[in-house]
Amino acid sequence: MRRALNTLASFLRHPAGVIGLVILIGVVVLAIVAPTLFPVDPWDMVAAPFQPPFDGETWLGSDMLGRDVAACIAYGARVSLLIGVSSTLAALVIGVTVGAVAGYFGGRVDEVLMRFVELFQTIPGFILAILLVATLGPSLTNVILAIGAVSWPQLARLTRAEFLRLRSREFVQAAVCQGQPPLSVVLRHILPNAVSPIIVTGSLMIASSILIESALSFMGLGDPNLMSWGFMIGASRSVMRQAWWMSVFPGIAIFLTVLAINLVGEGLNDTLNPRLSRKARGA
């Protein structure tokens, strides 16, 4: 508990991380209060088409069908965060399992699994995601699975490297010599020491998942029932000359969200990074 508080305190000393955290909280709050703020379905026509922003009727203007851009952005925040988090969780489950197995057992198992991971990393991930969603159908689940499927190799590699590094560390060998069974060694000594870089990479992965999701929606491969930022930008392309706000605002929303997550991730990295704390320890 004291440890967690210490971590939080040292995170708060990181100005960029705090800025990121503030923006991120803003986006999360927007996503939560979207239905209260905009009780009307974002797909419904609420104003005349092509209303410019800051003009009274709507905050951020309306699109070619009279939909409220601000409402669409608020609802889009829900989709982006939902997909970002759940596809990262999917990637975490696959990646950490594969990496842990490869790193702990080593040898043949490691060799085979890592060939597989390497292959997945070679394949252009975004094209694989397009292919998966296009073939299996553009539903929310399929989009999450497709993004998870292209993101996990990075986590697998990281987890494996951490496990390999820690497995040969002397404190882990000492635990083995104490007669602790393998599962206890992994859960008590390896995983707790590997978890910081996994958390950092995982948090940064939420940002890249949001970027992939928006690109898929932009290509017309988002769930057609859900309003998303990428879809909004895709829809605005043909009318870019008349209605700049239709593409500018959703883009800013993506940009800020991704930036905020990256800043928080960097802050976490600096807080949890063992190299810094090692320096502070001295010797």
Partner: peptide, 16 residues
């Protein structure tokens, strides 16, 4: 840091 957070397609549209 800013460039890294830009969606590629949106950057393209903004440049246009």
């Amino acid at each position: 840091l800013l460039l890294y957070a830009l969606p590629v397609f949106w950057l393209g549209l903004m440049l246009v």
